[in-house]
């Protein structure tokens, strides 16, 4: 079967459309709710789902995702339950590409080779591990290639050009460009130097670049999509979920506003 993420990126390119990638913390506020949001996101026009598997020590994340992760962990979430949830959604026809986001330790603990096989079988298309640079764990990379699980790498404003080139070459599906120096979380301002960095990056690679970290308003999403191939929104969605107190509609309203903003570019 063809990888849904690669397929999606090719479709978007053909249609000259920008991508909207939405993040959810698996198990926040509950795994059932996560499944309901995932299905609702697809219907609301989300292109890619980034599903965050909670870790006790999320050192690249700000307070919002630290909170949702801890809430999910307190309910006793495990890798198996998340895999089962996605497999269930796939059986019911969920077709959008889904990326597994987590820190490396839960994957290492599960067994990297076993994880890759199980993730692909459950219906994951990609994996993004913020604390795993391509230099570490070559065996994990080989397993991902063998089973067709795309690896997405992050490029930061601090990444030197030769390294950015190597990261872009290693990244599959798209490149995750970190908009700022810092942890995840909504920001009122997007850094001024982002134009310069993206211009350099575009000269370095032909692969699609999505911008994440700090994106929360439709205006920011529109502006950043204009500079790239789309945006990734995480903490702002988790905040909407927190505010919605279990209701789905207000969250999906926000998602639709964000999708419209992105697609207007």
């Amino acid at each position: 079967m063809k990888n849904r993420l690669l397929q999606k990126m090719a479709d978007l390119k053909r249609k000259k459309e920008k991508a909207f990638c939405a993040f959810l913390t698996a198990g926040y506020p509950s795994l059932e709710k996560t499944a309901a949001y995932a299905a609702g996101f697809e219907q609301s026009g989300v292109d890619i789902l980034e599903l965050g598997y909670p870790f006790s020590d999320p050192l690249a994340d700000g307070p919002t995702i630290q909170f949702s992760s801890q809430q999910a962990l307190d309910q006793g979430i495990g890798v198996e339950r998340v895999l089962k949830m996605l497999a269930g959604l796939r059986r019911r026809g969920l077709a959008l590409p889904v990326i597994f986001f987590s820190y490396y330790n839960p994957i290492l603990s599960y067994g990297p080779a076993r994880f890759v096989k199980a993730a692909v079988k459950a219906g994951f298309d990609g994996v993004l591990v913020p604390d795993l640079p391509p230099e570490e764990e070559a065996a994990f990379g080989r397993e991902c290639r063998k089973h067709g699980l795309c690896r997405i790498f992050l490029i930061a404003p601090t990444t030197a050009r030769p390294r950015a080139k190597a990261l872009a070459a290693a990244s599959e599906g798209f490149i995750y460009y970190v908009s700022l120096r810092g942890v995840t979380g909504a920001r009122s301002k997007i850094p001024a130097d982002i134009h310069t960095h993206l211009a350099v990056l575009k000269k370095t690679t032909k692969k699609p670049v999505l911008i994440g970290f700090g994106v929360s308003t439709p205006q920011q999403a529109r502006d950043l999509s204009g500079l790239s191939h789309g945006v990734i929104v995480g903490s702002a969605i988790v905040q909407e979920i927190r505010k919605a107190k279990g209701r789905t509609a207000p969250v999906l309203n926000y998602i639709r506003r964000m999708v419209r903003a992105v697609k207007s570019r």
């Binding site: 490396y104 913020p130 604390d131 795993l132 640079p133 230099e135 992050l154 390294r163 970190v178």
Partner: peptide, 12 residues
């Protein structure tokens, strides 16, 4: 050992 860190720190 190794260097299991977010990309932002690799340069530093």
């Amino acid at each position: 050992g190794g260097r299991y860190v977010p990309e932002t720190l690799m340069k530093a």
